[in-house]
Amino acid sequence: MIRSLVKYIISFFALIFLQILVFNNIQFSGFINPYFYVLFIILLPFETPGWLLLTTSFLLGISVDVFTHTLGMHAAACTFMAFIRPTILKTFSPRDGYESGTMPRLSIFGLEWFAKYALILIFTHHMVLFYTEMFRFSDFFYTFLRVILSTIFTGLLVVISQYFVFRR
């Protein structure tokens, strides 16, 4: 219990630093911005209570905001992503629910399940984030294209990372 708690706290900070130092510097022609740090919310255990899920997501978002001078935007997106997560998990659950002791991992549920689950969560996050950044609907399809492309890119990174680092 304590060990996994420590593991999550370390990955919380590791992902924030990775995002700030590496992924914020990747920008393909202003179109594709990967936001890899949302992996933290994707990997939280199934049993995480609702309030803890929302609070950690909010804190994660606001920490990234502080470093990118976009106070509130990532926080809003992460909070929304955390809010939608239980619903997504319920729709994708196996017939007799998730076994106790399992985690939302690629190694346990397979590539197809994990990719679907992760992509939808990443999509909601990017949707809220990019439209908050634009703050208007007049360039709706342009922003939507950015959302789709960035979702694909972040999704690729997330899935690939599962094969290397975050296996457990």
């Binding site: 309030w51 929302l54 609070t55 106070l71 509130g72 926080a75 809010f83 908050t132």
Partner: peptide, 25 residues
């Protein structure tokens, strides 16, 4: 409805940050 309420509180907080701290928004 604590989950929904907490969500709303965090969202309102976030957007008040957005509107107050980002010049463009």
């Amino acid at each position: 409805n604590q989950f929904l309420l907490l969500f709303l509180i965090f969202e309102i907080l976030s957007y008040s940050f957005v509107v107050r701290n980002n010049n463009y928004q």
